[in-house]
């Protein structure tokens, strides 16, 4: 089939390390799908990527090497070039590294908790039963609520004299402050998990839907009990969607600005001074646009390294069948 040829060729191209000679079997004539491909059809996507990603990225890198602040903003094209000074300042004189650590740890913890929650919820709602539609709808509530609303409601409930402390006080527990101090980090993790797990649930549900009916039958005929069937038959189907959920979830957590901003305000308490808040305060309260762009570039690089390793490990970029193998 031509699609198989295309798939194989594409895989060959991608799996060959840059700069290496093509393997002998790759010298065969180009397949029919490689000749005269209408690449111009990629133009709309290419233009969008250029406008939305590449130009801002180039601007960010440019801003990170100039002394752009409130005094130079008006004539930003004539702003003095200062090389790596912003980077040195970002790393040595600001809370950048601490903020990166807070952001990454918070994001990873949130993801590690939301993934099993989401998968479990998907499994629970996979088989039809009375009231399943209602359960599925309820599961989606945290996901459809805007982040601003979620944060506002939780902020109100977690006030020192709020409902949460009121209830805990009645059972003899005095938890202290939720929105400042060491507990605030766990507040952020908890609220993020509350708001984000349905995303994993949705992706896992989509994965489960793709399991052929015959597979269930075959497993039943082979006498597999539920746990074995789940572990050895169903979970392999979920590898692709859940890997994707892990990746997108972690990035979403790292980039989430609204939740910490509304929950804790700016300037944020030190324990929840996450990266987006730090960049925001540096940009829009201190007006150090060059410095904040340098922070953004540093964090982009630091986050891109594990991301790249992870992408290679799960082969999300090269798998042509959604990880069904």
């Amino acid at each position: 089939m031509s699609s198989e040829i295309a798939g194989d060729t594409l895989r060959d191209e991608l799996s060959r390390p840059a700069g290496q000679q093509k393997a002998p079997h790759g010298k065969k004539r180009k397949g029919v799908t490689e000749r005269d491909r209408p690449l111009w059809l990629l133009a709309p996507g290419g233009i969008l990527i250029t406008v939305i990603i590449l130009i801002p990225l180039v601007l960010a890198v440019y801003m990170s090497v100039i002394d752009l602040d409130q005094y130079t903003l008006r004539k930003w094209l004539a702003t003095p070039f200062i090389g790596i000074e912003n980077f040195v300042e970002a790393i040595t004189k600001t809370d950048l590294l601490r903020s990166i650590w807070i952001s990454v740890s918070f994001a990873v913890i949130s993801t590690v908790v939301t993934v099993p929650l989401g998968v479990a919820a998907a499994v629970v709602t996979q088989n039809p039963y009375r009231g399943r539609a209602v359960v599925r709808a309820v599961f989606l509530i945290p996901y459809v609520l805007p982040s601003f609303v979620v944060a506002t409601v939780w902020r109100t409930m977690l006030q020192p004299d709020g409902i949460v402390n009121g209830v805990l006080h009645n059972v003899g527990i005095d938890p202290g402050l939720w929105l400042n101090g060491p507990l605030s980090y766990w507040t952020l993790v908890f609220v993020e998990i509350w708001a984000a797990w349905p995303f994993v649930y949705l992706l896992a549900l989509a994965g489960l839907q793709s399991v052929d009916h015959e597979v269930h039958e075959a497993a039943a005929i082979d006498g597999a009990l539920w746990w074995r069937k789940l572990r050895e038959v169903i979970f392999p189907y979920l590898k692709g969607p859940v890997s994707l959920a892990f990746l997108l979830g972690t990035l979403n957590h790292i980039n989430n600005f609204t939740l910490p901003f509304v929950l804790f305000g700016a300037p944020a308490p030190a324990d929840v001074n996450v990266l987006p808040i730090l960049v925001y305060v540096t940009s829009f309260q201190s007006f150090r646009f060059g410095l904040s762009a340098a922070m953004a570039v540093v964090s982009l690089i630091l986050i891109a390294i594990p991301l790249f390793i992870y992408l290679r490990a799960v082969k999300l970029d090269v798998s042509d069948d959604g990880g069904k193998k």
Binding site: P56, N255, V279, S283, A296, S299, L300
Partner: peptide, 18 residues
């Protein structure tokens, strides 16, 4: 709206280009 690095850069820098 989530103000991420990209939004911020698009906001400040993009407007400049515009």
């Amino acid at each position: 709206m989530e103000i991420t690095r990209r939004n911020f850069i698009a906001g400040v820098g993009g407007v400049g280009a515009l």
